[in-house]
Amino acid sequence: MNPDSLTYVLLDASLVNNLVLASFLGICPFLGVSAKNETAVPMGFAVIFVMLVAGVCSYAINQILIYFDAPYLRIIAYIAVIASAVQLVEMFIKWFSPTLFRALGIFLPLITTNCAIMGMALFATAREYNFMQTLTYAIGGGVGFTLALILMSGLREQLELADVPSFARGAALTLIIAGILSMAFMGFAGLGG
């Protein structure tokens, strides 16, 4: 498959190089929010949404920075604009649909410091994606994050019922489960070959 095609970009971001399980981005919210399925799903959708916003913003900033030949401002500009964009999105959702805000609201501040968003923007820049590819990559990254989160929350809900040694409860066991899940995702490698 042509690595520039949109289908490939989508598959690559969501499955082959899954942001969480293969590229280790957004581990903090992944460990923090994946305990229950009912929080994992809205968090996932909030991330997809913010990914889109951040993808568009980062693409625009990068074009401006290339125009002014100032690549050294990239990190500052990305983080500042992504953080402000999330704030604006939060305000807009609050004004537009209070119901949606109640569903997503508590997750939005968490997402600002989510390195998956920043990482997605930086990866898309490093791969020199054009606008449509960046957009597709952002959606794919968000979908991949949601998929990992939902799978993980399902596993952890089952784990609640399992009889494990007391010292293994919590972070240690979650990480080992994540490792096994990550191994399962390795099966997707070669999908684009």
Partner: peptide, 13 residues
């Protein structure tokens, strides 16, 4: 002559 080449591999380009 030395030339560049690239293709999609197993994990990445």
């Amino acid at each position: 002559v030395a030339l560049r080449a690239s293709a999609q591999g197993y994990q990445d380009v």
